[in-house]
């Protein structure tokens, strides 16, 4: 075999590559575009997940927007305060406090709490199901369908279907907002993580309809509005909404809510304790009343 049959192809194609490479290298210098070096530095501070939660196409888009001054340094909801501080250092401005936000599903219509209109045997996708007549199988037309469109779209494993409704794992949630956008019922909202008081209902139906559909629906009675000392909760369109900029997380509304729609872990614990005490008191009373006839019987003897 002739060695040239290998040598020629290798040399010629390799040589072509070399010539083109050198040409491109030269052209790269001639046509070099001066890019703000801060774009690269900002990009390094960002998480790099390209989730699009900031509203820009990927982390690179946000980085150039931050350097151009059209986006705030805390524009990345995923990186939170940590990346905001790093970016602020690059940009030479103060980061400002960023409150960590988390998603919350404003519905508590679990399998036992809410009724269904019919049994749904279709694609496991809320967006599809919500386009059916009546907007899905839940009898409450505002309720969580529990088919997990938000679970599928979440890149951080922060959403799960528990007992027929979506539940957010607040530790994993990075508030990218993808679930907020995909939910066909618009049930998911972003709230500050520090505030624990939530309204677990989104129904805009009148009270009577709500009671017929769900045992834990907001009936728009406005008791919470009167209970709040900070003007932070209001009933609009038959649904209570909390203004988190005013809410002090006192839990008064959760305490007063007759349908247990408003949830606050502290108040819930208190309620549970109270119920336990009541149950215990009842039990001891029952015991007493049991003992009492017995003693009477003894007397009779």
């Amino acid at each position: 075999m002739d060695i040239t049959s290998i040598l020629y192809p290798v040399l010629s194609v390799g040589g072509l590559g070399l010539v083109f490479g050198a040409g491109l290298g030269y052209a790269g210098k001639v046509f070099a575009v001066e890019e703000d070096p801060r774009i690269g530095q900002v990009l390094e501070c960002l998480p790099g997940a390209n989730c699009g939660g900031c509203g820009y196409p990927g982390c690179g888009g946000l980085a150039s927007a931050i350097v151009a001054g059209t986006a705030p340094v805390n524009g990345c909801p995923v990186g939170g305060a940590k990346s905001a501080a790093a970016i602020a250092e690059v940009m030479g401005v103060a980061a400002g406090e960023t409150e960590k936000m988390v998603a919350h599903v404003n519905c508590n219509g679990t399998c036992s709490n809410a009724k269904s209109k019919y049994e749904y045997f279709g694609m496991s996708d809320c967006v599809m199901a919500s386009q059916l007549a009546g907007g899905g199988s839940k009898s409450c037309s505002y309720g969580c369908l529990g088919l997990g469109s938000c679970v599928n779209v979440c890149a951080f494993d922060a959403l799960h279907i528990v007992d027929g409704i979506a539940v957010v794992d607040e530790e994993k949630c990075v508030s990218c907002g993808k679930c907020v956008n995909i939910c066909p019922k618009h049930l998911i909202t972003l709230k500050p993580e520090s505030k624990k008081t939530v309204v677990n209902c989104s129904s805009k139906d009148m009270g009577k309809t709500v009671i017929a559909n769900c045992s834990v629906g907001c009936i728009g009675c406005k008791i919470c509005e009167k209970a709040c000392n900070f003007d932070a909760i209001h009933v609009e369109n038959n649904i209570a909404t909390i203004d988190y900029s005013k809410c002090k997380d006192c839990g008064l509304c959760a305490m007063k809510c007759p349908k247990n729609v408003i949830y606050n872990p502290r108040i819930e614990a208190m309620k549970a304790k109270k119920a336990q005490e009541e149950a215990a008191a009842k039990a001891s009373e029952a015991q007493k009343s049991e003992e009492a006839p017995a003693s009477e019987e003894n007397k009779a003897e």
Partner: peptide
């Protein structure tokens, strides 16, 4: 060889346009 030529040319056009 042709692909090599085309790829290099496209790179050049890209730099030029940028």
């Amino acid at each position: 060889a042709f692909i090599l030529v085309i790829a290099a040319l496209v790179q050049l056009v890209e730099m030029f346009l940028k």
